Simulated scan of single mutants.
Amino acid sequence: MLRNPRILKAELGKPQRNCYTLPGFDFAYGLYIERTDGGVPEAIGHWNTIKPRTGLTRNMPRDFITMNRGALKAGYTTAREFNLYYKAKDIRRKDDEYSRFRRSPPKVPADMTYGMPARPSTPFFDVFQHKYKELWMEQQRALTAALRVEKKKKDKLRETRTTILRKQPVPVKEESFWHLPHLEKVGPHLSTFPDRDAREKAFSAAHREVPARRGPLPQDIQAVS
């Protein structure tokens, strides 16, 4: 009866049973993993520690003043003796001597006051007299005037080369064909017309017949409609 949840009845003052049998008190829940690292004795015997990083020491420049003074006191005078002394006693400058403030200290004025400046007092008179309102209105008027001027500049059409040439056209150069200088004043050697009037009449008649003739050059036969 206690193993079938369908016929199991609820007990007074107790939670509903799930009808499962639990193992004994010596049962270990979970997944058993076989230890392969040796446990606590192995950890104590072989403790893997991280070596601390050593601080990066800056290689300071040589203190040639001190080395030159020492070389002179030792009685060295030549360049070779000085170089040998530099190799024997390599004296470096100290860190505080090479600091930025020692090399170039900041220039501070004599009347400088350190700390944060005090907050300025509230201008009550300007608030009572509506001065900020007047300043704002003046700024708005100036802004409106600037926008109006800019709009006028945009509305004005910019003249192009075409419009300028329409107003002021370029004068047309008269083309003059080049002639040989020794043939400019030479008259015609052949004239098929009896006189000048006959020549002009013939040319005027040919000009009147241009619309009625065929061909790319109006010199062919007349077109018959």
Rank of each mutant, 00 (worst) to 15 (best):
142 A>P: 00
197 D>L: 09
10 A>Q: 14
212 A>N: 10
66 T>E: 15
53 R>K: 15
183 L>Q: 08
184 E>W: 01
139 Q>I: 00
172 V>F: 08
90 D>H: 08
186 V>Q: 11
9 K>M: 10
150 E>Y: 07
159 E>D: 07
166 R>W: 04
5 P>T: 08
202 A>T: 02
46 H>F: 05
123 P>G: 03
73 K>A: 12
6 R>S: 13
61 P>G: 06
77 T>P: 02
132 Y>P: 01
11 E>C: 05
117 P>A: 11
212 A>P: 00
54 T>S: 11
223 A>P: 00
5 P>V: 01
167 K>P: 00
199 R>H: 11
222 Q>K: 13
119 R>M: 10
167 K>R: 14
14 K>I: 03
130 H>K: 13
185 K>F: 05
119 R>C: 08
5 P>N: 12
138 E>K: 15
210 V>P: 00
96 D>V: 07
109 P>H: 04
6 R>T: 12
135 L>Q: 07
188 P>S: 05
88 A>Q: 11
15 P>C: 08
47 W>N: 05
189 H>Q: 07
20 Y>F: 14
196 R>V: 01
116 M>I: 04
13 G>Y: 12
20 Y>I: 08
94 K>Y: 02
175 E>H: 10
140 Q>I: 04
154 K>Y: 11
17 R>C: 05
199 R>M: 14
82 F>K: 07
198 A>V: 02
64 F>M: 07
12 L>N: 08
6 R>W: 11
2 L>I: 10
219 Q>S: 13
151 K>F: 09
124 F>L: 13
202 A>W: 13
163 T>A: 04
193 F>N: 06
132 Y>N: 14
23 P>A: 06
22 L>A: 07
103 R>Q: 07
209 E>Y: 00
142 A>H: 13
106 P>A: 01
95 D>E: 15
132 Y>H: 14
38 G>I: 05
186 V>F: 03
173 K>N: 11
85 Y>S: 10
143 L>Y: 13
67 M>G: 00
151 K>D: 12
212 A>K: 12
9 K>Q: 14
202 A>N: 06
23 P>C: 02
101 F>Y: 10
175 E>R: 10
